[in-house]
Nucleic acid binder design. Structure first.
Lengths: 234, 234
DNA sequence: AAGTGGTCTAGACCACTCC
DNA sequence: GAGTGGTCTAGACCACTTA
C-alpha cells in the first residue's frame, strides 16, 4: 500500500479521457461520467478534471453543457489553428532576406465594393496602398490595402516605402477583431506582372477585414505568388 | 466603503488587461506586473489572473515565461482557428442537399510521391479512392484519398458508394494528429471534368495527412470547385 | 426542482529560468 | 538562489438547462 500519492496532472486526465474515446469505451454520442465522478475515480480535484475536459472540448472532440453533461461529439469538428505572422517574420523565418517595394499610394474615393465594406459616406476618400513583399528578391506576395484615414490618421504621416502597411499596422494599430478568408484566384495581368508569373496562374488569396469598436479600420487583399502553401497541424 | 464585493471574473480581468495593451499603457515589449500584483490590484485570486493571462497568451498577444514574467508581444502572431467540419455537415449547414458519388476505388501500388508519405515498403498496396461531393447536385469538392489497409483493415469492407471516405473515417477512425496544408492549384483535365469547370481554373486545394501512433493512416487531397472560400474570424 | 458544468477563493508546492 | 508562472487542492456558490 502506498503511503503517499503523487498528485494527478490535468494532462494525465486528458490523456486517459482521450484514450477512452479513441478506444470506444466512450463512443460518439455517449454521455461520459460527470466531473465529480471522474475526479473521484482519478483521485484528483474536480478542478483538475474540469481543466482537462475544457481543453478537450476546445478541440471539438467532446461537447459540454450544463445540466446536460458531457458527450463525445458525433461529428467532431476538427479545429486547426493557423498562425498569421507579420509577412516580414514569415520570410525571415525561412532564412530569406526580406524587402518591400511600394508600388502605389493614393488617396481616392474607393470603388463601391470597397466602400460597402467600410460602411462610409459615398464621397469619403480612403488611403489605397499597393506594395510587393519580396523574399531574397523574389516576389512573394502582393499587398493591396485600403485604410480609413479617419480611423487611423497616423497612416497619412507614415512612409510606406520604409515599412510595409502590413508591418506598420500590426505593430502600431490595435484592433478588436477581424474576418479572414482564404481562396484561390487566377492572377490578373497586373498581379502577374508584379508577381513575375503568367496571367491566369493560380494564386493563393487571403482577404482580411480588421475593425475596432469605431468600425472598419482596414481591408487587405494578399495575393501570394504561385506555389505558396499555408500549413498547420491538427 | 463597501461591505461586500462581488467577485471578479477572469473575463473582466482579461478585458482590463487587453484595454491596457490596446491603449499602450503596456506597450509592445514591456513587461507587465506579475500575477500576484495584478491579483492584489484587481482584488481577486491569483488563479483568476492566471486564467485571464493564459487565455490572452493563447491568442499570441502576450508571452509568458517562468521567472522572466509576462511581456506584451513585439510582433504578435495572430492565431486564427479554422473549423474543419465533415464535408456533409459543411454542405448541409448551408441549407443544401448533400450527395456523394464514388468515381474510383482500387487497391494498387501507390506512386512514389504517395509512398514516401506513408513510409511503407515498395511493394505494398494501398486503397485509392476518388469521389465527388455535391451540394444540391452541383460539384463541390473532389476527394482523392489513399488509405493504408493495414492500419485500417475495416476500410476494405466498407462500401464507399454509401458513405464518403471523409465521413466514414471521421466517424469511425480515431487519430492522434495530422498535417494540413492549403494552397491554390489549377484544375487538371480530370479535375475540371469532375468539377464542371474549365481546365486551368483556379482551385482551392486542401491536403491532409493523418496519423496515429502506428504511423500514417490516410492522406487526402481535396480539390474545391472554383469560387470556394474558407472563412474565419480573429 | 435538481443535476451538471463554470468559476472563484485561499493556500500550497513545484518547475523553470534568469541573475 | 530567488522570482515568476504552472498547477493542484478542497470547498463553495452560481448559472444554466432539462426532467
Amino acid at each position: 500500500m502506498k503511503s503517499a500519492e503523487t498528485s494527478v496532472s490535468w494532462q494525465s486526465v486528458r490523456s486517459e479521457v482521450l484514450r477512452r474515446i479513441h478506444e470506444r469505451i466512450w463512443a460518439p454520442g455517449d454521455q461520459i461520467p460527470h466531473e465529480a465522478e471522474l475526479a473521484s475515480e482519478f483521485g484528483c480535484a474536480r478542478t483538475t478534471v474540469n481543466r482537462a475536459l475544457r481543453e478537450i472540448a476546445e478541440t471539438g472532440l467532446i461537447e459540454r453543457r450544463r445540466r446536460a453533461g458531457t458527450r463525445v461529439a458525433l461529428h467532431p469538428v476538427r479545429k486547426a489553428t493557423l498562425n498569421i505572422p507579420v509577412i516580414r517574420s514569415e520570410i525571415e523565418d525561412l532564412g530569406k532576406t526580406y524587402s518591400f517595394g511600394l508600388i502605389q499610394r493614393e488617396d481616392v474615393t474607393p470603388p463601391l465594393k470597397v466602400r460597402a465594406r467600410f460602411q462610409i459616406a459615398p464621397d469619403r476618400k480612403l488611403l489605397h496602398i499597393v506594395g510587393l513583399h519580396l523574399a531574397d528578391g523574389e516576389p512573394h506576395v502582393l499587398e493591396d490595402r485600403w485604410i480609413d484615414p479617419v480611423a487611423i490618421p497616423e497612416a497619412l504621416r507614415t512612409d510606406f516605402a520604409q515599412i510595409s502597411p502590413n508591418e506598420w499596422l500590426v505593430t502600431n494599430i490595435p484592433f478588436d477583431g477581424g474576418d479572414i478568408s482564404f481562396s484561390a484566384g487566377a492572377a490578373g495581368e497586373d498581379e502577374a506582372s508584379a508577381l513575375g508569373c503568367t496571367a491566369g496562374a493560380p494564386t493563393f488569396v487571403v482577404e482580411r477585414t480588421t475593425w475596432n469598436d469605431a468600425g472598419t479600420l482596414t481591408i487587405v487583399r494578399l495575393v501570394f505568388a504561385p506555389g505558396y502553401r499555408l500549413q498547420t497541424q491538427i
